[in-house]
Design a protein around this nucleic acid. Structure first.
Length: 998
RNA sequence: GGGCUUGUAGCUCAGUUGGUUAGAGCGCGCCCCUGAUAAGGGCGAGGUCGUUGGUUCGAAUCCAUCCAGGCCCA
């Protein structure tokens, strides 16, 4: 030791951290490699095997639409699901995950049609379907890759695909059940209609262009009800004044709607038919007078408001009016909240066959869905004679003329407005009632024993009942209310669409146009679809589709003789895609044997699915099984930008998932997701994800330091139980509390709490307090020193616990870390994802549970309190640490830069021998917790009132020599003659090492 | 316009049945260390708890209004 003053010499005698675990993550490079390895190992299958026979937990995946790249919202959803699945599997449950895709539907068909352009017109449905299928396949593959790049684990080799034959067949099986329950019916409903192409159109197939139309004011003469609600008519003809831009729909008029809350005025005015008493919304009187007066100045002669009443009073008076075009038809006044004062008269012409709102009103008020317009746009025989055979555009002037003749036309004008056009033919569309298929939500189910309930009734029961009473659990809890509200207000479910890309509604029609669609006929077709796919609907004959099915043997048919199989033709409607995805609980969860019976454990989607997939899965499940498909419905909010506004491409505030994956890696993105309270909207931006990256580094470095500190530690050989008064014991309590808190947060799906807890644990308990404190003994003690091994024991436990607890959130990083845990027991699984989450020890927690806040009032350490348990004492010791750190900071500013150059003096109230004894017991730990070179204890009689122990820090540079090995300044430096530059401890270690080397 | 929902420091979150000077971590500022080093540590400054009224001895916590977001409808 001739160069004993040279500290580099001693550096070689220290046990410095040693590990291959990279400080820099390199996620972009490593993650794909780790994912490849998982694939090669068949990790998912191995997890399944390992959990075989364990209690099941089924998170049933809601299928994303197979169109486009995934976006941040999809990533949020999938990662949350993945965390759930991983947590459950690591909790020892058998939690398979079968991802799925929704493949049918308009967006894909639209994309394909647009790509085809004009060529699309001449293509048969089967051709369009094949192209759509190829398109969907492409995006299923793309999204599957993207999900797996996010680290999502599941049965990606065999996902569920709604366009696959077995899935299509399963949907029809559910449908057959609903038919059996008497819930499926056919009825008129207005849809957008292209006269040019004689086809129904979806919203997405409409283009809005400006168009000039005639608008008219027409009077409907009141003929019935309590007309005295209008007051004295005084010879005037009482009439309702309506305004419309589609005079051709007047033949189909069945009612006039008013808003109950509005005030209506009675206006005397001169018309061609003499003086009338017109009902007009009070606020629109002037506007109407101006409009009509401009065209017909005479209208204003004697114009005056003679009275008013509320819309509700008009309704209560049960008024009826004579239809202006049809002799003998009288119609009612009905309420409607969609009536506005923006234009018109505040009274709305209602033709249920020609308008969506009118249709809704008709359902509420029991009006017919009447539509005299045929598919070519011409009027049928029920229309007034002068219109029959004419098309709606020809009809407009003729209707106006007829009204004028009758003296009921007050004026007409031309207006330019935005009007829907068929995107293919560019011709204007109309609203026209057509026959559609529905699922009734208010009809009592037929076949459920002992149930008089309707789907709505059963569904409301599911959300009214509490989870422990066979009801559905909602997370967050307000989902229950929202879900119920949406159920309560929903109309019957229109399940038919007039498109090509979808599952055909298995209705066949005889020559009389009557449908054949019974449970058995549908099941027969289902069997065919299972073999051949739904394309068979377009290529096979009805006889082939029906197979062995014989109408004559079908008890569900009243008149089987009317349905000769060889005379049937297939219907052209397809299912609403929601019916397909809404049957997945059966087509996937049950058909694949994930569950024997519903409900499954969990559905987890965005809160938009309250009205979407959740509701539309519940209804078929109730109709088919009388059971909800889910036990728990968990929703998350939407991804919004950093300022809380919705993301949109046009605003340029979107964050691209793939960009982030390429730039930062999946684990960063996952950590960001896991740290969000997803119940509300989730703010997302470059800065926010960058924060997650910072947090990631902290976590990673903590793990790394733990590994480095345990490089020579083998738990099987070196484990040492931490002594009662060591900081290791304190850390042990912290670890068990961590495990408990994180597992509780996992169980409650509060991943952000789990994540925060672990992150702050790494920052505070681990890095700042514990690891800093034990550095000296790790580095300087001899390798086998009890004190050192005890700390390594705790650090190793902490490392293993953290890696497992973090694995559901950071699967790649934890897999990498798993491979770097020193002396990992040989019987531990190859992958962390096959491991189980750590358990916490109740006994250790109960030590912590003994914590009682030491009364702040007297500030006195009653010895009873000190003896309530280690945790109680440690609370106080940590307070002393805090106080000492503040004083060290002051000392640092006064020139003592290194805390090892300071000594701490703990002052105990004179005479308090027991407090003295306790502090003396913990003195070595306090020394390291403060990072000072030396700590001593002394009695003091100048402590402030209420203080039992205080801490002072002193500059020890003049007082003690500095140990050249541990860098601590303490009185025992030089006490060993062989090592005059070392403290007693370090000198002893050097001697021991020297012996060891000999 | 309707239903549901959110609004606490720059950020992410805690704030128990309304009760003393509203907390944490990060970030930020200043400082230290250089034996976790593209690391680590210490201290500190940040909030009229969205607004305005009200209930109360007392409200971030209860009520009402308004403002600004979000989802779903219309």
């Amino acid at each position: 030791m001739g160069t004993g003053k040279d500290k580099t010499t001693y550096k070689d005698t220290l046990n410095l951290p040693l590990t291959d675990f990279d400080m820099r993550a390199g996620l972009i490079r490593k993650e794909p490699a780790i994912q490849d390895r998982w694939k090669q190992q068949g990790l998912y299958g191995r997890i399944r095997k390992a959990r075989d026979g364990a209690e099941r937990f089924i998170l049933h995946d809601g299928p994303p639409y197979a169109n486009g790249n995934i976006h941040m919202g999809t990533a949020l959803n999938k990662v949350l699901k993945d965390i759930v699945v991983r947590v459950k599997n690591m909790a020892g449950l058998d939690a398979p995950y079968v991802p799925g895709w929704d493949c049918h539907g308009l967006p894909i068909e639209d994309k394909v049609m647009k790509e085809l352009g004009q060529a699309a017109k001449d293509l048969a449905p089967i051709e369009i379907r094949r192209r759509c299928q190829a398109y969907a396949d492409r995006f299923v593959g793309l999204q599957s890759d993207q999900f797996q790049r996010l680290g999502v684990i599941g049965e990606f080799d065999n996902p569920y695909i709604t366009m696959h034959p077995e899935y299509e067949a399963a949907v029809l099986e559910v449908f057959a059940d609903l038919i059996d329950q008497g819930l499926v019916y056919r009825q008129l409903k207005p849809v957008h209609w292209s006269i040019e192409n004689r086809t129904a159109l979806a919203d997405a197939e409409l283009e809005y262009h400006d168009r000039d139309d005639v608008s008219i004011y027409a009077a409907f003469k009141l003929v019935g009800g309590q007309l005295d609600v209008l007051g004295e008519c005084d010879g005037a003809t009482p009439a309702l004044l309506v305004w419309t831009t589609t005079p051709w729909t007047l033949p189909a008029n069945l009612a006039v709607a008013v808003r109950p809350g509005y005030t209506y005025a009675f206006v005397r005015a001169a018309t061609a038919k003499g003086t009338m008493l017109l009902v007009i919304a009070e606020q629109l009187v002037e506007k109407v007078a101006a409009a009509v007066g401009a065209a017909r100045p005479a209208f204003l002669q004697g114009f005056q408001v003679v009275g008013t009443c509320k819309g509700q009073q008009l309704l209560d008076a049960n008024l009826t009016y004579a239809h202006p075009l049809l002799e003998g038809r009288t119609c009612p006044v009905v309420p409607a909240e969609y009536v506005t004062l923006d234009d018109g008269t505040g009274l709305v012409h209602t033709a249920p066959g020609h308008g969506a709102e009118d249709y809704g009103t008709a359902l509420k008020c029991g009006l017919d869905i009447y539509c005299p317009v045929q598919d070519d746009g011409t009027f049928d025989a029920t229309a007034p004679e002068f219109l029959r055979g004419k098309d709606v555009w020809q009809a407009n002037p003729m209707v106006i003329e007829a009204l004028d003749q009758a003296g009921m036309l007050l004026c007409q004008e031309t207006i330019r407005h935005s009007y829907p056009h068929d995107w293919r033919s560019k011709t204007p569309t109309i609203f026209r009632a057509t026959k559609q298929w529905f699922i009734a939500v208010d009809r009592p189910l037929r076949g459920m024993t002992g149930s008089e309930k309707s789907l709505r009734g059963l569904a409301m029961d599911c959300c009214r009942r509490e989870p422990d009473d066979d009801g559905v659990e909602f997370i967050p809890a307000w989902g229950r209310n929202r879900f119920a509200g949406m159920l309560d207000s929903r109309p019957d479910w229109c399940i038919s669409r007039q498109r090509s890309w979808g599952l055909p509604i298995p209705a066949m029609f005889n020559e009389a146009g009557e449908p054949l669609m019974t449970p058995n006929s549908v099941l027969a077709i289902a069997a065919t679809f299972e073999r051949l796919g739904a394309d068979a609907w377009f290529t096979a004959t009805p006889a082939e589709l029906l197979g062995d099915y014989d109408p004559a043997a079908d008890e569900a048919l009243d008149n089987p003789e009317a349905f000769a199989v060889d005379k049937l033709r297939c219907g052209k409607d397809i299912f609403d895609v929601w019916f397909e995805s809404g049957s997945s609980w059966y087509a996937v969860a049950m058909k694949r044997g994930l569950v024997d019976t519903i409900p499954v454990d969990l559905y987890l989607e965005g809160s938009d699915q309250h009205r979407g997939w959740f509701q539309l899965s519940l209804l078929p499940a109730l109709g088919s099984r009388g059971q909800a498909p889910f036990r728990t419905v968990l929703t998350h909010g939407f991804v919004v930008d950093e300022d809380g506004y919705k993301m949109s491409k046009s605003d340029g505030n979107t964050i691209d998932v793939i960009d982030q994956l390429d730039k930062r890696g999946a684990d960063i993105l996952r950590l960001w997701i896991a740290s969000q309270d997803y119940q509300d909207d989730v703010r997302c931006g470059e800065n926010l994800i960058a924060k997650a990256e910072d947090a990631y580094r902290k976590i990673r470095n903590t793990l790394r330091f733990c590994m480095g500190s345990c490089s020579d530690f083998d738990p099987a050989r070196d484990t040492v139980e931490p002594t009662e008064h060591s900081v290791d014991r304190w850390m042990l309590m912290q670890i068990h509390q961590l495990i408990r808190d994180v597992r509780e947060a996992f169980d409650a799906y509060e991943f952000h709490k789990a994540t925060r807890r672990m992150y702050e644990f790494c920052t505070v308990e681990a890095s700042s307090i514990y690891l800093s404190a034990v550095k000296d003994r790790l580095y300087c003690e001899s390798p086998d020193a009890i004190r050192r091994r005890a700390s390594q024991t705790v650090i190793h436990l902490m490392l293993c616990s953290l890696v497992k607890l973090l694995a559901p959130i950071l699967p790649h990083t934890c897999e990498e870390a798993w491979g770097h845990i020193p002396a990992k027991p040989a019987d531990w699984p190859e992958s962390v994802h096959l491991a189980l989450l750590p358990e916490y020890d109740e006994d250790i927690l109960s030590l912590a549970g003994d914590i009682r806040p030491v009364s702040a009032d007297d500030g006195k350490w009653a010895l009873d309190e000190l003896r309530t348990g280690p945790a109680g004492i440690w609370d106080k010791l940590m307070d002393l640490r805090g106080a000492g750190l503040v004083k060290l900071e002051a000392l640092r500013n006064a020139g003592v830069k290194k805390t090892l150059d300071a000594e701490a003096v703990f002052k105990v109230r004179a005479g308090d021998d027991e407090a003295m004894q306790i502090i003396e017991t913990y003195r070595p730990e306090l020394e390291d917790l403060l990072g000072v070179g030396y700590a001593r204890v002394e009695f003091a009689d100048d402590l402030p009132d209420g203080t039992t122990v205080d801490v002072e820090v002193l500059d020890s540079r003049e007082r003690y020599e500095r140990c050249a090995r541990s860098w601590k300044r303490r009185p025992d430096v030089g006490s060993n003659e062989k090592f005059p530059d070392l403290s007693a401890r370090d000198a002893a270690v050097m001697e021991e090492l020297g012996k060891g080397r000999q």
